[in-house]
């Protein structure tokens, strides 16, 4: 239930500085809040509203439009099973049913130990590797029930499933991005051939 912490306020200001208009930073900042708390708290939304200069209702409206933003706590691992056409054709519905059995929760549910939340995902652009799943938005393709069990077992054991590191829910890119120039001349066309 938190506003952004001092480190993240600093990161937020860097993000805002990348855009000609502060409001453009809204989605990245919501990701930042989700990385901080695992989901997006009302306090964080109000804080983001202050940072980008809008009303909290507008942040709320934006944050509820996009499915990655969770407004209540989810498990450490968000396990998403794609069930769109290509995956469905190759057994995704059955895989999802298996996942429900394996985790003991229905779609949308979180395991009692808070480890896993099961989601049904929309097309993840991995149709050539159908059926596919994501754990905290890291891909696993050509997933059979056996491989699914292996991924869950590895995560439960605290090891990287199939050698792929899976940071906690909310963490997306860990890369530090360049800072764009704030030079006002960049708003005008440049001519290098006269």
């Amino acid at each position: 239930m938190a506003r952004l912490n001092p480190t993240n306020i600093e990161r937020a200001r860097e993000v805002i500085a990348r855009y000609p208009q502060p409001r453009s930073a809204m989605i990245p900042l919501l990701h930042l809040a989700q990385e901080q708390d695992g989901h997006i708290t009302d306090d964080a939304k109000a804080h983001i509203a202050e940072l980008v200069g809008v009303m909290p209702a507008e942040v709320h409206g934006v944050s509820t439009f996009y499915e990655m933003f969770k407004h209540e706590d989810v498990g450490r691992y968000l396990v998403g099973v794609c069930t769109n056409l290509s995956c469905m054709l190759l057994g995704a519905d059955e895989l999802l049913a298996h996942a429900e059995d394996k985790l003991g929760v229905k779609v949308g549910g979180t395991t009692p130990d808070g480890s896993f939340t099961l989601e049904q995902m929309q097309c993840l652009a991995a149709c050539g590797g159908a059926p596919c799943i994501q754990v905290n938005y890291r891909y696993f393709e050509n997933v059979t029930p056996e491989r699914f069990d292996g991924v869950i077992a590895a995560l439960s054991a605290g090891t990287d499933p199939e050698g792929q590191a899976v940071p906690p829910h909310g963490t997306l890119s860990r890369v530090s991005l360049p800072h764009p120039s704030t030079d006002a001349d960049r708003e005008r066309p440049q001519e290098i051939h006269s």
Partner: peptide, 24 residues
């Protein structure tokens, strides 16, 4: 290759990476 004075040409360009949040 990006940013200020790209490849010494005198031309500068910023590229901002932005990511979405789940909406087709």
């Amino acid at each position: 290759y990006a940013g200020d004075n790209i490849l010494g040409s005198g031309w500068s360009m910023d590229v901002v990476l932005h990511w979405g949040a789940g909406a087709y």
